[in-house]
Simulated assay, not measured.
Amino acid sequence: MSHRSLAAARVGRRTALAGLIALTAAACGPGSADGGGPDGGGADAGATNGFPLELTNCEATLRFEAPPERIVLLESAPVTTLDGIGVLDRVVSRAGAFPPGYYDEDLTARIEAIPALSEDIDAAGHLQINQEVVIAQRPDIVFGLPDGITREAMRGAGAEVVVQDVFCGTDGERASFETLYEEIDTYGRIFGRAGAAEELTGALQERVAAVSESAKDLRTATAAALYPSLGGGPLYTYGAASMVTAQLDALGLQNAFADTAERVFEISSEPLLAADPDVLIVLYQGEGDGSDVVEEMIAKDQLSALRAVQGQQVLPLLFNFSEPASPLVVDGLERIHEWLHEIEA
């Protein structure tokens, strides 16, 4: 089956699995019909409790006097977490790529309504933007720290910068879905939405558990995730600290490069051919189904001898469906699971 036909076939199976998981969540979800959170009221109860708030983010200590009201997004990954805890309407501007393939029609429309500062992405997938453009938006919180943006300048303009924890370095710790749940908890604390954060985490935990249970009959044993740079740049793969490893662990698969502690690192064709994993996941950014990215990667990096390539067991997947930690990684887990069942059928 070609990469394009696999992309089309995934739609029907994803719909069926989504219905199964929705029924599972309805049957055993912890929330009640009145929306009450574990703090005794609604998800917003006591929203200003806990402020001023100080927390550590990478090498920095962040301080918030009150829940932020003006968000600037310099990456797409936080979107579904912010939406899940009910604060996406506080985003005043965005920059970077926000492919509609990540979201349903309603969320896509809301994102497109947010003013875009820049959509300039280099070949490695990095946002190009001027710091003064960001400061002009008068944010009190900024998500993402691309080249040319500094915490010091943002703080001087009244904004704290939040970076995804997986980008901070993990001291060799293996990533798990706890990484995601901790990230959601942090967002809940920052915005005074602890109850909403717990509800979101509970729903995601149920979905992960449903996929793990269904994946027990998979025959596939090993996988690797790759990120090919566009325009002839290096090829990257993902190690133990990546959310790719968390996804594969949940599916009962071995990441062929999980013995490397790094989250992401360059790889040549030789170690990839030596590992020869059963399946490949190719992460990409931008529009389309990613089949052109796969074809270019195979030709450029001389990977046609891989079993996964010869058997057409290669899945193109939009980047945020595997990296970094966000609810989209659970969507990605479900997509990988559905695809594995398709190729084993």
Rank of each mutant, 00 (worst) to 15 (best):
A224S: 14
Q247T: 02
A241M: 06
A256H: 02
L253T: 15
A256E: 01
A246E: 02
Q254K: 11
T260F: 04
T237D: 10
T245G: 00
D259M: 01
A223F: 14
G233A: 11
A261Y: 02
G232W: 03
Y236K: 05
R263G: 01
A224G: 02
S242H: 06
Q254T: 15
A240N: 08
F257E: 03
N255R: 13
G239A: 09
L251C: 01
F257S: 08
Y227L: 12
G233W: 10
A256T: 09
F257G: 02
A223M: 15
T260S: 06
R263C: 00
P228M: 14
Q254C: 05
T237P: 07
T260Q: 14
R263A: 10
L235D: 02
V264M: 09
G231W: 03
A225Q: 12
Y236H: 12
A246V: 00
G233R: 09
A250D: 10
S242I: 08
Y238C: 06
A256D: 00
N255G: 09
A223Y: 15
G239Y: 00
A223N: 07
G239E: 06
R263L: 12
D249S: 11
L251H: 10
G232M: 06
P228I: 12
V264C: 02
T260L: 05
S229F: 04
G239H: 04
L248M: 15
G252D: 11
L251M: 08
R263K: 12
A221P: 08
D249P: 00
A241G: 13
A258M: 12
M243A: 03
V244W: 03
V244I: 15
G231K: 11
T245R: 06
P228G: 11
A258I: 14
D249K: 03
L230I: 07
A250L: 09
D259G: 12
T222I: 13
A250Y: 07
A224I: 13
T237A: 11
A250F: 06
L253D: 10
A246Q: 08
V264Q: 04
A256S: 10
A223T: 14
L235V: 04
Q247V: 04
L230H: 06
Y236P: 00
T220V: 14
E262Q: 13
Y236R: 07
L251D: 03
V264A: 06
L251P: 04
T222C: 08
A240W: 09
G232D: 03
L248Y: 12
G239T: 07
N255V: 12
Q247C: 03
G252C: 08
Q247Y: 07
A246G: 10
D259A: 14
G233E: 11
F257Q: 03
G231A: 13
T220W: 00
G239F: 00
A240I: 15
G231E: 12
V244H: 06
A261T: 10
F257N: 05
L226C: 06
Y238I: 01
A261L: 09
G231C: 11
A250R: 05
L253S: 08
N255E: 00
G239D: 07
Y227V: 07
T260K: 05
G233D: 10
Q254V: 14
T222D: 08
G233F: 09
P234Y: 02
G239W: 00
V244D: 01
G252T: 09
A224H: 10
P234L: 05
S229Y: 04
P234T: 05
A256L: 08
S229H: 07
L235C: 07
Q247P: 06
